[in-house]
Each structure stands twice: as C-alpha cells, then as structure tokens.
C-alpha cells in the first residue's frame, strides 16, 4: 500500500497548518493553565497562616526567620524541630534530613511542606537564604536550589 495522494494546494495547506499550529498553542495554554490550578504552590509567612490557615495536607511554602533558640534535634538524631517567625507570629516546623549549609538560627528560610492536623508544619524541603552580601540573581537562583530533601 502506498500513499500517492496528490498534495493539497499550498494555499489551503497553509491554512490547515495554521489552524493546527494555533490549536496546538491553544491546547498547550489550556494544559498549562489547568495544571497551574492544581500544582502551583502558595507562599505563606507565619502571620498569613494565622490570618488564613491553609488546610492540613495542602502543599504550601512557608517562609520566615528561624526563631532564635528554637532549634531542637529530636532523639532520632535526624529530625529537627524549630519555629519559623516573621517577628510577629511563629509556627512550629519539623524537618527530617540534612539541613542546607546556610541554615542557622536567626537566618531566613523557605520551607516546603504541609500542616498536619496538630498545626505543626511538616517540611519536606528547607531552603536557606544567603546572608553575607547581596548577590546577583544567578547566584540567588542557585542558592534557592541548595536545599535538603526528605527521605520518602
């Protein structure tokens, strides 16, 4: 079996192609927007948590400073408990794993995870912010990647 169909007239074909291209872009856009609705992560500061509490289990990012004197290592030696504060309110956080290089009391952190039913934030990753000096965004960008990741 061979396909020996005569090619369409170029002008018509161009229109068909155009329609296809626009449909593909529209499809991609629709796909993107529908995925955004379900997978975009919202960012909360501790005060925001008290103003409008996220549902337990909802994936969010929580950012703030690691409260001074709050970092405790639990007996398993691997889990850290600490509080994240924005100098107004603070939230208890629990994280199992190796914290990033820049994690320290008093330093800014961004944690990803969810709240459990008791109101403790279970972090699956902790990102520390740099502190020494202001840096170009490419460095900022890479620092955001310096993160720990939890054992599944």
């Amino acid at each position: 079996m061979t396909t020996t169909k005569a090619p369409m007239k170029p002008k018509h074909q161009r229109l068909v192609l155009l329609a296809l291209a626009l449909a593909a872009m529209a499809g991609a856009l629709a796909l993107g927007i529908s995925a955004l609705g379900s997978s975009a992560t919202y960012f909360y500061a501790p005060s925001d948590v008290f103003a409008k509490a996220p549902a337990p289990g909802e994936a969010i990012r929580l950012g703030g400073l690691v409260q001074k004197g709050s970092v405790q290592r639990l007996p398993d030696g691997l889990t850290l408990a600490f509080r994240v504060t924005d100098n107004a309110r603070d939230v208890p956080v629990r994280y199992t794993g190796i914290v990033p290089d820049l994690f320290r009391e008093g330093q800014g952190v961004i944690t990803e995870g969810h709240f459990d039913a008791q109101g403790t934030f279970i972090a699956t990753s902790v990102l520390a912010k740099h502190d020494e000096n202001y840096m170009p965004p490419e460095v900022e960008g890479s620092l955001h990647k310096v993160q720990g990741k939890v054992t599944s």
């Binding site: 500061a45 005060s47 100098n87 800014g108």
Partner: peptide, 10 residues
C-alpha cells in the same frame, strides 16, 4: 520581600 514589610511600624 516578606521579611522587610513586617518590621515597618514595629
């Protein structure tokens, strides 16, 4: 910047 705004007025 999340952290800065919180200090204003404090």
């Amino acid at each position: 910047v999340t952290l800065t705004s919180k200090l204003i007025g404090q």
